[in-house]
Design a binder for these strands. Structure first.
Lengths: 339, 339
DNA sequence: GAAATTGTTGCACGCGATTGCAAAAAGAGG
DNA sequence: CCTCTTTTTGCAATCGCGTGCAACAATTTC
């Protein structure tokens, strides 16, 4: 009659059944699985035995309904197969598991609307918190989250949101250091290779770099193209290196761009790094340590970011909205002269 | 008094409140948000209006409790920041979202016990399904999953489990083709570079390659070391290339190893690819297309895998356990002569 | 031995939704 | 206008669990 229901029928064993088998009340079962509840050693043993035999597991959906705490944390992210993103996700979900929470993964496209939808989903699932790695949701939605008592963490999102924790890198300052490094290496013509997506942190790096150059009275070439991926780095390098005044130093908005730039400089333009051209990246993805690149870059401390985010989730908020500033460490490798 | 409760207090608006505001019964609200339920146009409008004003969202926890269908799908995976894994996760979570399901991410360490724990968690959350990308859970647990009506998908896991869908690559056959490719390129001394973790698919590649060589009456060198990462490739290359009879062709168990092997062959041993040595990888990670590598490799069709997995979740099982065999395509690039 | 204290246990209610059922309302047909 | 059919609606039961409350048992104290 109802074949669809038949197939999807889930028959999990409930606390009632365990109680019957153990010869105790349902409350006893519930208390056995509630840390800190009052149960005698004897009943606990019998309950555990019955639970084991029947394959009982507490229903976290129902528990979440009662406790008003689902244990779910929503991770909102786009292009999650990118090296930096995936390592951040890994770090976060690892930290979450350490405090018995569990990550729900939602990937979005570029649009802010899809981030809004993701947050709505988080609300529907009564997620304890949402961590946003990409895009920027509408204020009305974030307000609803906060009002509903959901925690909110924005990573490298720049824009402020009441009641949310914001973890940001000090992009400007880092960019400044990149410029100094180029100067020390004796570079004369510096350039900045950026994507054209214009996210706040990328723009901050650009602005910081340009500002440092202007401050030093040096001209700087800025080129922007495509998403922050390898292929864009290829195009950017082609544009930069065919210029009349060829740059001898390129600061790239992130490591993937840098890889594309380096490969193109070497293979297509037959330049050597760092003798003909110095390159600095940003993120500290694993590939940069590979001997084909050996890229000097700024390290985003993903573990620290993850730890800060998760520990804030488990601790009460101190003020209305908190900002955490992290200074990325410049990791010296072979793509810049000197060091 | 109870400061902790205060802080974690979540105050979501419930269907009751919406009903009151709209002047209808709770059932009407529920039906408005249940596709296919019978509600008049007028009440639906009033309900939606009230819901909008109050910021109401259906509680999926409670819905899941009633419907016995949480909408959650558990992804169990280790080392998820690895390029191949992260692209597979992306593909799967994307497909899941397309059918209104949502991925919970659990990362495990190497041990099978942690996979067991992950599955137990999946049961606790009444996940509609679990997809296992790493490790192999105990049969007692998988049986419990299947008995409870939870769907199970094993990707590249080899070992059989009753009631589960198994998606496997035809590793042996692919390895055979790799050997043929080397022969066509005129290679004389072939080698296989493997990790020593010994997962079924890696071993299948090794066995297939060795079998093909033996069949052709050619000797083959096999070296195993470490996890399937770049750094292991470096070590493997050092071991292989310092041998008296230096191989002129290396089939690597996966792309990361291949990258390490290539870099080491070039930079440390000053060999050129593919003239001095040919290399073939496995997985088709993005890095292999970078011009520093330009690696000939077997493409794991992640989108196809994801699609098969998810479509099986939404369709009734036809038989007890289903196996799907996929033949990876050999993508020819510059790391092998000829082609 | 009685009273006070401490520790367990079961009952019953509530969490926020879905849904079968029957009553009420609306529409159709003559 | 009345009857028959079709929609719409509200009531109440249900899902699996947590927990306050009161009853009860065990232990301590005087």
């Amino acid at each position: 009659m109802r074949e669809k229901a038949d197939v999807n029928q889930k028959i999990f064993v409930s606390a009632k059944e365990v109680a019957d088998r153990a010869g105790v009340s349902r409350s006893a079962v519930s208390r056995t699985f509630t840390p800190g509840a009052s149960v005698s050693e004897e009943t606990r043993r019998r309950v555990m035995e019955a639970a084991e035999a029947l394959g009982y597991h507490v229903n976290h959906l129902a528990r979440g309904l009662m406790r008003n705490e689902s244990g779910l944390v929503c991770l909102i992210v786009s292009e999650m197969d990118t090296p930096y993103r995936s390592s951040l996700i890994r770090a976060i979900s690892h930290q979450l598991q350490a405090v018995s929470k569990i990550a729900m993964l939602i990937n979005t496209d570029r649009s802010d609307k899809s981030v809004d939808d993701a947050l709505r989903l988080a609300i529907s699932y009564r997620a304890d918190a949402s961590i946003i790695l990409s895009g920027m949701p509408d204020k009305s939605i974030t307000d609803l989250c906060v009002k509903s008592g959901q925690r909110l963490v924005l990573i490298n999102r720049d824009e402020e949101r009441e009641g949310a924790l914001m973890i940001n890198l000090n992009d400007r300052e880092a960019a400044h250091r990149a410029f100094i490094a180029f100067q020390r290496a004796g570079c004369r013509r510096v350039a900045f290779a950026n994507s054209d997506v214009g996210t706040p942190s990328l723009m901050a790096r650009e602005e910081g770099f340009v500002a440092a150059a202007i401050e030093a009275g040096v001209e700087v070439i800025v080129e922007r193209f495509g998403p922050t991926r390898y292929q864009s780095g290829v195009i950017l390098a082609q544009r930069l290196l065919t210029r009349e005044a060829r740059p001898d130093a390129i600061f790239c908005a992130n490591d993937l761009l840098a890889c594309g730039v380096m490969d193109t400089a070497r293979h297509q333009f037959k330049l050597t790094v760092p003798d003909d051209i110095c390159v600095i990246g940003f993120d500290y993805i694993e590939q940069c340590s590979w001997s084909s690149y050996d890229l000097t870059t700024f390290a985003q401390p993903v573990d620290q970011i993850a730890k800060e985010a998760v520990s804030w989730l488990t601790h009460p908020a101190k003020t209305d909205s908190i900002a955490s500033q992290i200074s990325p460490e410049l990791v010296w490798r072979g793509s810049v002269r000197g060091g």
